[in-house]
């Protein structure tokens, strides 16, 4: 067992940074802790003393932690820190809604005027609706990962199940729509079949009659 597990866990808990950055810092400190431990052992300290001295040596004060976090924070994160959590959440929701409304407006315009969509099955609208929700969720995830850069485990996992479920629903509606349309077309074919057969025979007979 790593004798510095507790020290590193405390550090992991205290460092408020995206997980990849945090992991790299902890990896760097862990290697130095090992060297310090060996150094104190070779200087004559007992195992327990060496562990304690090494841990004390890399003990990051609140000020040092703040400096470390500040170095790795993006300008955007620093700006967000100045805004209260409540205001931040409201601001994020408003921007997300605005982006979605803009996308939905353009998409609706394109879908209601393009011939392809005008002639499409009604099932397409179900798939399109799911698509809008998925796009909204994806924009939020993109914002959280690449702009806000929150890589906490909770943030990483949130919304992924919903995305998978939405994908499943969209496939389900698509397949259902496909079969329904085929069924409807088949019924039409069955209804018109005798007429089609007569038409085919007649078209074949025309050259013979001539």
């Amino acid at each position: 067992m790593n004798p510095f597990k507790q020290t590193l866990q405390n550090l992991n808990h205290k460092l408020d940074l995206p997980q990849p950055t945090k992991s790299r810092i902890i990896l760097e400190i862990a290697a130095d802790l090992d060297d310090l431990y060996q150094h104190y052992l070779s200087a004559g300290a007992s195992e327990q003393e060496a562990i304690q001295q090494a841990a004390d040596m890399v003990d990051l004060s609140d000020e040092a932690l703040e400096q470390l976090v500040s170095v790795h924070q993006t300008a955007f994160q620093k700006l967000l820190d100045k805004i209260s959590l409540q205001a931040q959440s409201m601001w994020e929701r408003t921007v997300l809604m605005f982006v979605l409304v803009v996308i939905a407006t353009f998409a609706t315009h394109a879908m209601t005027t393009t011939q392809f969509f005008l002639e499409a099955s009604k099932f397409v609208w179900g798939v399109a609706g799911i698509g809008v929700v998925a796009i909204g969720l994806s924009i939020y995830k993109f914002y959280a990962f690449y702009i806000k850069r929150t890589h906490h485990t909770r943030t990483l996992h949130s919304g992924l199940t919903t995305l998978i479920l939405l994908a499943g629903f969209s496939i389900l509606i698509g397949v259902m729509g496909n079969f329904t349309e085929v069924f409807l077309v088949q019924n039409k074919i069955t209804f018109f079949a005798p007429f089609l057969i007569i038409l085919l025979i007649l078209s074949g007979l025309i050259p013979v009659l001539r």
Binding site: I25, E28, I29, D32, L36, M57, V58, D59, L60, S61, A64, Q67, L68, V71
Partner: peptide
Amino acid sequence: LNHGTLYP
């Protein structure tokens, strides 16, 4: 140089 000072 304490390591707590060194990393930042």
